[in-house]
Design a protein around this nucleic acid. Structure first.
Length: 340
DNA sequence: AATATCCGCAACCGCTCCGAC
DNA sequence: CGTCGGAGCGGTTGCGGATAT
């Protein structure tokens, strides 16, 4: 038995809103504020579904909304965060003042997705399409026929979008072909010229895991933080080889979803330095000991996950272990108001 | 100039989440 | 602890303007 509809769909107006209806919503909110949207149509004198009223307000009428075009900085931030957390539009929008989840979602679907595809970047995985193809081909445990079918499908999609070169040719801004890049992606970055610079292992990993990487990797662990916004190369690479060459079960997406990564983004979409993070944490009321502990914890997070997974811990085991350790270490940060 | 096609965006739909009871 | 209902989220649809033929 399903839930009854929130309103009588046959008796409410649908479709585009008139200025008069907008004025009624605005007047109602000005007098009563938002909340209990199911009562709004009746109280405001509207023949609309309450849900529709809420949508109209949140997506269009809210006074704090920006109605101008997205800036390049906002574009970069959306791409970065989408690469990290996927299509969680409300989360992305919450970090872009004046933008709604609907705005961000529409902008992604109409502009950014196509832009990435033209750049040869798979908008779902944010990897070079050549790498996606390579990954598909190397999936173990899948019968060859299935893989072949998947490859055929992907090839068709890519050809339709002019993303798959008909022959090996140098990619823009590099002397190496896409195929060569794929083959070397374990150790070299794959680059093409782009007005964007997306968060990658190169500019995230050294920042977040400077302590961990210094002890686990002899590769370059520059702590230079690259500011987004300037024209730079779009660098994609497989982090596994650099960070955990000894462990093949590590999944970079797990890290991207971790709060360690989220902490490295501030609302403007710029990567924060350790000093900035410290200052922010301090200004938020954390004491020095707490800040140091957080930084140490953040830096050690990747190494911890790699170790645990190499030791045969399941993903869930790792989360539970981590939860216990964090609760023991920072009881003051894990009060009811802490989002975790 | 008329028609077809494309594109962007507002709005809708169905579902999940979460607090109140 | 289960149910109810409001709020919110993400995917999808469809309208209207812009552009191509």
């Amino acid at each position: 038995m399903g839930r009854p509809p929130c309103c009588d769909k046959s008796n409410v107006k649908r479709g585009l809103w008139t200025p008069e209806e907008d004025a009624k919503i605005l007047a109602y909110v000005a007098n009563h504020g938002t909340g209990n949207w199911t009562l709004v149509p009746k109280k405001a004198g509207l023949n609309r579904c309450g849900k529709s009223c809420r949508l109209r307000w949140t997506n269009y009428l809210r006074p704090d909304l920006k109605h101008d075009n997205f800036t390049p900085q906002e574009e970069e931030f959306i791409i970065n965060l989408h690469g990290a957390i996927g299509s969680r539009w409300s989360v992305i929008a919450s970090r872009l003042p004046g933008r709604t989840d609907n705005d961000v979602k529409n902008y992604w679907n109409t502009k950014l997705r196509k832009k990435l595809m033209k750049m040869g970047i798979d908008p779902v995985t944010h990897k070079p399409v050549s790498q996606v193809l390579s990954d598909l081909g190397s999936i173990s445990g899948i019968p060859n026929t299935t893989t072949t079918n998947q490859m055929a499908f992907v090839n068709k999609e890519l050809v339709m979008n002019n993303m798959l070169p008909t022959k090996t040719e140098p990619s823009a801004g590099s002397n190496k072909s896409m195929v060569e890049h794929t083959q070397e992606s374990q150790v070299h970055s794959w680059e093409l010229h782009s007005p964007y610079q997306v968060l990658t292992t190169e500019n995230v990993q050294p920042h977040v895991f400077s302590e961990a990487s210094s002890s686990t990797s002899s590769s370059s662990s520059s702590s230079n933080l690259t500011q987004l916004g300037s024209p730079q190369s779009y660098s994609c690479q497989t982090p596994r080889a650099q960070i955990a060459p000894h462990c093949s079960s590590f999944d970079w997406s797990d890290f991207l979803h971790s709060d360690s990564f989220m902490w490295s983004l501030n609302p403007s979409g710029l990567v924060q330095s350790e000093a900035e993070l410290s200052n922010n944490a301090k200004s938020n009321g954390h004491d020095h000991q707490g800040v140091a502990a957080i930084e140490g914890c953040r830096g050690a997070s990747m190494e911890y996950q790699i170790k645990k997974q190499c030791e045969g811990h399941s993903f869930v085991d790792g989360i539970l272990d981590r939860d216990s350790e964090l609760r023991a270490a920072f009881p003051e940060f894990l009060d009811a108001s802490f989002e975790y």
